[in-house]
Simulated scan of single mutants.
Amino acid sequence: MKLCICFVLLSVVLYASADNPFSSGFKFVRDAAGGARDMWRAYRDMREANYIGADKYFHARGNYDAARRGPGGAWIAKVISDAREGWQSGVSGRGAEDTRLDQEANAWGRSGGDPNRYRPKGLPSKY
């Protein structure tokens, strides 16, 4: 996990310093770092809640929170989501359909869609 975080942070720095339309310097990096924290918080909450049927909600929520920070947050949310789904699809055994549905929830949240669309009944209000 530490290696993954280091890779993500290095990617943020390299991307922010590249010649691209989103590289407004420090703000992009700050938004990306905050977005990574949002994604981590959603993942941590998902693990803590351990609630059957809630994973899509947490996918959407993490992406939603990260993307609200701006282009850096949206970018890091996509990077993390794609990396996680790429890794998970190879080891989880849940199949392509689960990966597709996870990515649908990720994109929904990143585009500003309300994560509660995926909220299962009975999930504690804490989340």
Score class of each variant (00 low, 15 high):
38 D>G: 01
52 I>G: 01
70 G>K: 01
75 W>F: 13
47 R>A: 02
69 R>C: 02
68 R>G: 08
96 A>T: 07
74 A>N: 10
52 I>W: 13
49 A>G: 03
70 G>P: 12
84 R>H: 09
56 K>I: 00
56 K>P: 06
86 G>W: 02
48 E>G: 02
64 Y>T: 13
85 E>N: 13
51 Y>K: 08
44 R>P: 04
52 I>T: 08
47 R>I: 10
99 T>L: 01
82 D>S: 03
49 A>W: 05
39 M>G: 00
64 Y>F: 13
103 Q>H: 12
39 M>C: 03
67 A>F: 07
93 G>V: 14
51 Y>E: 09
65 D>K: 11
54 A>L: 03
96 A>S: 03
89 S>N: 15
75 W>N: 15
65 D>G: 02
73 G>W: 10
100 R>W: 07
51 Y>P: 03
46 M>D: 14
90 G>E: 15
55 D>K: 10
56 K>M: 02
58 F>K: 03
77 A>K: 04
90 G>I: 11
94 R>I: 13
59 H>Y: 00
39 M>E: 04
46 M>Y: 05
98 D>F: 14
85 E>R: 11
86 G>M: 06
51 Y>M: 13
67 A>L: 09
72 G>H: 07
81 S>N: 15
80 I>E: 01
86 G>L: 08
61 R>G: 06
55 D>S: 10
55 D>F: 03
47 R>L: 09
77 A>C: 13
84 R>Q: 14
37 R>L: 05
78 K>D: 15
47 R>F: 00
88 Q>K: 14
53 G>R: 07
44 R>H: 00
48 E>C: 00
89 S>C: 07
52 I>N: 13
59 H>V: 00
67 A>Q: 08
36 A>G: 07
84 R>N: 15
97 E>T: 11
86 G>H: 04
67 A>R: 07
59 H>A: 06
75 W>T: 03
91 V>A: 11
93 G>P: 11
99 T>G: 07
53 G>Q: 14
38 D>A: 03
52 I>M: 03
85 E>H: 15
87 W>M: 08
70 G>L: 02
95 G>F: 06
61 R>S: 05
94 R>M: 06
83 A>D: 10
67 A>Y: 05
60 A>K: 01
37 R>Q: 00
65 D>M: 03
48 E>A: 12
84 R>S: 14
57 Y>P: 05
103 Q>Y: 00
41 R>Q: 10
92 S>G: 13
53 G>E: 09
96 A>K: 11
84 R>C: 09
72 G>E: 02
75 W>V: 08
52 I>S: 04
45 D>I: 01
39 M>K: 03
91 V>R: 10
85 E>Y: 06
37 R>S: 02
